[in-house]
């Protein structure tokens, strides 16, 4: 295995080195080193940056900024990010969480990317040296993206406004059958005033359930109120088939789990 690693102090220098053919950025390595171990020869060089800003978490004024090299374990134990602890703990086992980074999760193909599902529901922006991109746009173009992700930023939701669910067959740690994250806000009368729902495993990357979001507006969070949203949830999905579950199964159980999450 010839996998030369280049380490740079600054993101700028690392970005320049990434322009070379066959190079890839090294985050925690849980996907990229795994691919190399498996015999993937498309990557011949790895590049990383040790810039401390990449490992910083800043929570202030209701907003959070998480550096791309921050691990799932660091998020799970950060007091200012308690709301996201469940989503961070949904990724892998303890050792994987000590290695898996936020930046890498944005690129993880389904069934992985559970944390990116949470970030999509939070309407995060993804930072690179060129500026900030809305996460939906970023995910859609991630196969062509070459620039190093430096951070993700988002407005912290109210404690009861954020919901997350990962369904897996093996407990406590298992690969996703599906994951769902939702940020639902309710008006004083209990009706839904805004909703963002993100789905994992319903395509090759995290997907917004826009039809379901629309069907929730003005409704209450009870079985009748959410019925239309549950029917709409499967609109536009193309679930993956893998050893964990078939596309058919994933589509069948999505409304069931979305219903449980919305009524919880």
């Amino acid at each position: 295995m010839a996998l030369a690693l280049q380490t740079f102090a600054t993101v700028k220098d690392a970005n320049a080195a990434l322009k070379a053919q066959g190079t890839r950025y090294l985050g925690g390595g849980t996907l990229v080193v795994r691919a190399a171990n498996e015999g993937d020869v498309s990557v011949s060089g790895l590049v990383r940056s040790t810039d401390p800003a990449l490992s910083a978490i800043a929570v202030a004024g209701g907003k959070a900024r998480i550096g791309a090299s921050v691990t799932m374990a660091a998020i799970a134990r950060h007091p200012g990010l308690a709301i996201l602890a469940k989503a961070a703990r949904a990724v892998g086992g303890p050792a994987i969480r000590n290695m898996a980074t936020v930046g890498g999760n944005l690129f993880a193909p389904a069934p992985y990317g559970d944390f990116a599902v949470a970030l999509l529901a939070l309407d995060a922006t993804v930072g690179t040296e060129d500026g900030e991109t809305p996460i939906g746009t970023f995910l859609a173009g991630r196969d062509r993206s070459r620039a190093i992700v430096t951070s993700v930023s988002f407005t912290l939701p109210k404690t009861d406004g954020f919901r997350f669910l990962k369904v897996s067959r093996v407990k406590p740690k298992g690969v996703s059958v599906l994951s769902i994250a939702a940020v639902v806000e309710q008006a004083a009368d209990g009706t839904v005033s805004s909703a963002r729902i993100a789905l994992g495993c319903m395509a090759d990357r995290p997907l917004r359930a826009k039809a379901a979001e629309k069907a929730l507006l003005g409704r209450t969070l009870d079985p009748d109120g959410i019925a239309a949203a549950l029917t709409a949830a499967t609109e536009g999905i193309a679930p993956i088939t893998d050893p964990i579950a078939s596309a058919w199964y994933r589509a069948e159980v999505l409304p069931v789990h979305l219903g449980r999450l919305l009524l919880s």
């Binding site: 090294l26 925690g28 390595g29 303890p94 050792a95 000590n98 290695m99």
Partner: peptide, 13 residues
């Protein structure tokens, strides 16, 4: 002090 998987960790890091 942290549990890691040595098969996915590059020694240089």
């Amino acid at each position: 002090g942290e549990l890691r998987l040595s098969c996915l960790t590059l020694a240089e890091t």
